[in-house]
Write a protein that binds this DNA or RNA. Structure first.
Lengths: 197, 197
DNA sequence: TGTACATCAGTGAACGCGCGTTCACTGATGTAC
DNA sequence: TGTACATCAGTGAACGCGCGTTCACTGATGTAC
């Protein structure tokens, strides 16, 4: 039965949000359209009234997840003095909560190796997400001339740290990695800040 | 028709090697048993004469890939003075060749986000690979008290750098990330070395 | 060393299953007058 | 504003497909004497 325009838009948005959570939790290949539609209380047949393919949903889910994750990082740094913002974002990114709950976290850390096997458009979406993350970090880092470069290394270490911590089944090793990354990344940021003054 | 013991052992070894390449190239979910067996000139029916499940093959393929990748890093550093070994390994890991050819490279960088969705045994295999990589890096780093911690951050940045470079479709962005990681990681290593003296 | 038999690596068809996608149908919503 | 009709969101069955796994069969290898 036909739905109102408002209901239709809500259904679509709910599907994107559910997909963003499920894909991050268990991977793009690990979640079927049936499960996503069931998660929003619908049957799978209606999917194609909203999306032309699963690939299109992946695209939008990644973008939506990135938007949420970036906002979470901004919130973590909000109201803090400039020299504490990076530490706040790094702490949030490397937190046990982020490692334990990929479904709410950074889509790059959750889906990065899958990205290289996805469609061209999906890889474009990931490229935009990565660029946005670098910009966010570069803004928070010092105004030194090399801050783009420092942001790239910091982001790589953050993503790598969370990915490694999630890949292992050894809690102690995971904690050791997260602590090592926190130390290395914040140490470096402090050095950079010192150079600046 | 029955084969000799030697042939049987060779077939099994070839299957592991082919799987190690194919899984790294296109992911565990992206490659079927049929394709792996075809790659070694056999039909898929014989697979279960060698392995109890696909999961067992994944396990062995990851371990074999890790062994190869580690050896490649050792080779890159061989014969160099102690203070140049890390730079040589980092250069190799972040090289365009490694980014362009996951099938010959580090299994962690190729399969890390998939690892978290695999069986318990597979995650154990990844844990061992990560531990081995940290040991390798820690040995090559300074003998300072914090070298395990530094190795963790360095390895995370290397893995993250390659994963990000592969996820994007923008060559310039990929190069910028790789250069940023190289700079950050080697700069930090040099600082550590200086502290040591 | 030679012979008879048991073993088992590899073949290729078949299994059930879940996937992404399509489709005829339903009935409430949106539109035209 | 009220009525008649067209639109289309959602349902649920069905599509072809490829997956991991199983199995009856073949014939060379390994073993026992």
């Amino acid at each position: 039965m036909r739905r109102s325009r408002q209901e239709t838009a809500q259904t679509r948005a709910k599907a994107v949000r559910a997909a963003a959570r499920l894909f991050r939790a268990r991977g793009v290949d690990g979640v079927g359209l049936k499960e996503i539609m069931r998660a929003i209380g619908m049957t799978h047949g209606g999917f194609y009234k909203h999306f032309s393919s699963k690939s299109e949903l992946v695209l939008e889910a990644v973008a939506a997840a990135a938007e949420d994750a970036r906002q979470a990082l901004r919130n973590a740094a909000e109201g803090l003095p400039a020299d504490q913002r990076v530490a706040a974002m790094v702490g949030r990114y490397l937190s046990p909560a982020h490692v334990a709950h990929p479904e709410n976290g950074c889509p790059v850390a959750a889906l990065a190796t899958e990205a290289s096997h996805q469609s061209k458009l999906t890889r474009k979406a990931f490229t935009r997400v990565i660029e946005g993350s670098l910009d966010l970090l570069a803004d928070a880092l010092s105004t030194a001339r090399d801050r783009r470069s420092a942001a790239a290394c910091t982001f790589a270490a953050l993503v790598g740290g969370v990915v490694l911590a999630r890949a292992t089944d050894d809690r102690k090793l995971a904690d050791e990695i997260l602590a090592g990354v926190r130390r290395g990344v914040l140490g470096k940021a402090q050095v950079t800040n010192r150079h600046r003054r």
